[in-house]
């Protein structure tokens, strides 16, 4: 049972400037919700004011399905309780913005995709904190998907001259990996497809492929698997053509300048979730089985891919 979903669409709408009265109301509704959020935030800040007025700021990216507000609110509440200080979630649609927020020290922790992690690690801006466990293991892979009506395609290389949907220029599964694969096959990733575009999210890759906007797309297996449970109607409209080898799961990173104590506290809070009934419940809703201490070696494959592509 995953009480995810249903908020994704409104997030899409929110991104769009209103074109009619209805959107005007939706916008107002969203604004109102933001104000409520802020009120809750301020109220909870006040509770913790005596101990530590500085809130912990936690960045969220499309590496997870990052727009389930209710789940995230509950999780934030949980973390506040465990850390005994205010926590703020900062959601961004593009990895670039999250990377910039870490660089600008505007967030302390972030759950990022593997590519941004390796980038941040290499730039010595952040370090690995924990790796989530999906079905008990710290791995994920990349899926190449096409519309379910396309029964021909068997590999990425058959997609020459097609329209391809990328997730984010800093996404491993949704950008780096397919380009790497093309490059390894001797193709020019910049010319191989007739047209490419970014959807700024993994779920939207599924949307774009299902709707026929793109002929194919590549995305995070965790997102697709989760969607296949909470929105099977959507994933049924797509077909997985290929699955990549496994790589380390998109990790939670800590900004380098975050104090050891804060870092340890956060790590402890996340690692302890699986052993805590409330935490376990949240994990279940996140479709994860827990968090494990990070192991940088898990991401070597990604780093290799990055370096190869960076040489291009």
């Amino acid at each position: 049972m995953f009480p995810f979903g249903n908020k994704i669409e409104s997030s899409l709408i929110y991104r769009l400037p209103s074109s009619n009265t209805e959107n005007y109301f939706i916008n107002h509704f969203i604004m109102l919700r933001k104000y409520l959020w802020l009120t809750v935030l301020l109220a909870s800040s006040a509770v913790w004011a005596n101990e530590n007025t500085q809130p912990i700021r936690f960045g969220l990216t499309p590496a997870i399905i990052h727009n389930q507000y209710e789940l995230l609110a509950d999780w934030r509440e949980y973390l506040q309780k465990k850390l005994r200080r205010p926590v703020e979630f900062v959601s961004r649609d593009s990895y670039r913005e999250t990377i910039d927020l870490i660089r600008q020290q505007k967030i302390d922790f972030a759950w990022v995709s593997t590519y941004p992690y390796v980038y941040l690690e290499d730039k010595r801006l952040a370090r690995l904190l924990v790796t989530p466990l999906y079905q008990g293991r710290p791995y994920y892979s990349f899926y190449l998907i096409v519309p379910s009506t396309d029964l021909e395609t068997k590999s990425l290389l058959q997609l020459k001259g097609k329209i391809f949907a990328y997730a984010d220029p800093y996404s491993t599964s949704g950008y780096l990996a397919p380009r790497y694969q093309l490059q390894q096959a001797g193709e020019n990733p910049n010319r191989f497809f007739r047209k490419t575009f970014f959807t700024w999210g993994h779920q939207r890759i599924v949307d774009a492929v299902a709707q026929g906007l793109a002929d194919a797309g590549s995305l995070d297996s965790f997102v697709w698997d989760t969607l296949s449970v909470i929105q099977p109607d959507l994933t049924h409209q797509t077909r997985i053509v290929a699955k990549s080898p496994e790589y380390g799961f998109p990790p939670v990173v800590a900004r380098r300048s975050v104090s050891r104590a804060d870092s340890a506290a956060m790590q402890q809070a996340l690692l302890g979730m699986a052993n805590d009934p409330e935490g376990a419940q949240l994990l279940k809703r996140l479709n994860l089985s827990g968090f494990a201490p990070g192991d940088a070696k898990l991401y070597d494959g990604i780093r290799k891919m990055m370096r190869t592509m960076a040489d291009q």
Binding site: R15, P17, F197, F198, A208
Partner: peptide
């Protein structure tokens, strides 16, 4: 009005989202 910047930046997805709403 919304499509203009999306087209200017060749942001297909954003354009798609804009026209999907109605």
């Amino acid at each position: 009005t919304n499509l203009f910047p999306a087209m200017l930046h060749d942001d297909v997805w954003r354009a798609y989202e804009i026209i999907s709403v109605p």
